[in-house]
Design a protein around this nucleic acid. Structure first.
Lengths: 229, 229
DNA sequence: TCTACTTGGAGAGCACTGCTCTTTCCCGAG
DNA sequence: CTCGGGAAAGAGCAGTGCTCTCCAAGTAGA
């Protein structure tokens, strides 16, 4: 059996190496990386690569899945890094900083996840689970905030938004009021917007104190959501 | 002289037609549209197209410039559509809705502006002026808010952020307190994040009431900035 | 009006791309 | 020890951005 799994192991290693090489190319060529160049880098011919990935899109899908999971892992690590689990504000901010740090360390992968959608490419269902890990980490803090008895916002939500939030809660986080979820989603959007603005060059020649301005924003968001100091 | 300008006029028309065709291709092929396909669509050979644009990047730059200006025009129109110039909240919200409407109507051009940066492509200086039209429109509302005597936020800004905002103010909007500019920039980021999330598919299967949730967010942002009802 | 010059279009060609198909080879299960 | 299947190689197809040469047509000066 060790012989039988050898083939499989080699194949798995090969697949990993292809992805690693592709990730390297991602940094310079973006989403339109070249299969042939990846193969060339590995000393193999391009057609051999099709034994591992049926198409370029399949390779991209694998990279996207890995990236979502890497970001999710980083976000969760940011959360658990705060040993005092009752320090909700610190946890929220730690997650935000973890997301930004991961994005700055892996800009091309972040762009693959949150940048312009690749034309003619449709993400398979499998990615959505990985994609929701990061927002779920944020929602966990909201849930702990509710359990700790902190007061929640009392916005008036339009009925349709209320329904959306109720549906979101049903799938993920029982017990969180719709109003809090709505504000939490806003915070997730602000986090994404801030990181994207910085990474995509929209802050150039405007804001130099990137870290400080990010911190300022996220503190403000945390306050808005109702996470006390 | 009418003969001399004929050539120029034909050339201008040709340039416009190329851009229009390219814009159409942008919708299906995204940023990696094909010069040859554009030429084919116009019944000409690809090399002829190089008489008008020295490279594919140059064509993209022209499209980007046009898109920034179109968005800026839409934003300004959203502002001036509010006849009561003292209705600052209405003006702010009208600008936000105009930006979203333009983005929904021109998704691929929006992606070109605010999506993943094109690898190896660096925007020339000329685009920055067009790019700032939309945020400047928002800042105008902030300025009118100050002039109207509305109270401004009293955040404590880190010194570096304070300096950034002072520099931003110096170039654009004298008289606006740094704290207000910082919050206004947050609002611009939230607007961008909300539109991008919706357009790039991040809201799929989560929020269905797109319009209503957007409105909710922007109202909240306006309140946060300190624009009274 | 005739000529000299500039300009725009056409076509061939180069190096590259994703992908398919066929051929070869070699590992490992029976 | 045989032989089936997985993996690699290579040729080939249609497409790409871009360059170069060639030619027709429009423009300006005498």
């Amino acid at each position: 059996m060790s012989a039988g799994s050898l083939r499989a192991r080699v194949r798995a290693e090969m697949t990993e190496e292809i992805k690693a090489t592709a990730r390297r190319h991602l940094a310079t060529d973006g989403a339109n990386l070249s299969l042939r160049a990846v193969a060339r880098d590995m000393g193999m011919v391009s057609s051999a690569l099709y034994r591992y990935f049926p198409s370029r899109d399949a390779l991209l899908t694998a990279l996207i899945l890995d990236a979502y999971n890497a970001l999710g892992t980083a976000a969760e690590a940011g959360d658990t890094a705060v040993t005092d689990r009752t320090a909700l504000r610190a946890r929220w901010l730690s997650i935000c900083h973890a997301v930004r740090a991961w994005a700055l360390a892996n800009p091309s992968e972040y762009a693959l996840l949150f940048g312009s959608p690749v034309p003619e490419y449709h993400a398979p269902e499998a990615t959505t689970a990985a994609a929701s890990r990061t927002p779920l980490t944020l929602i966990t803090v909201l849930k702990d905030s509710v359990d700790a008895g902190f007061s929640t916002p009392t916005d008036h939500l339009p009925p349709t938004v209320h329904a959306d939030m109720a549906r979101l809660r049903a799938g993920t986080a029982p017990g969180i009021p719709e109003e809090l979820l709505a504000r939490g989603s806003m915070g997730w959007i602000q986090l994404f917007g801030a990181v994207s603005f910085e990474l995509f060059g929209q802050l150039n020649n405007v804001v130099e104190a990137r870290e400080a301005y990010f911190e300022y924003q996220m503190r403000h968001v945390a306050t808005t959501i109702g996470i006390p100091e």
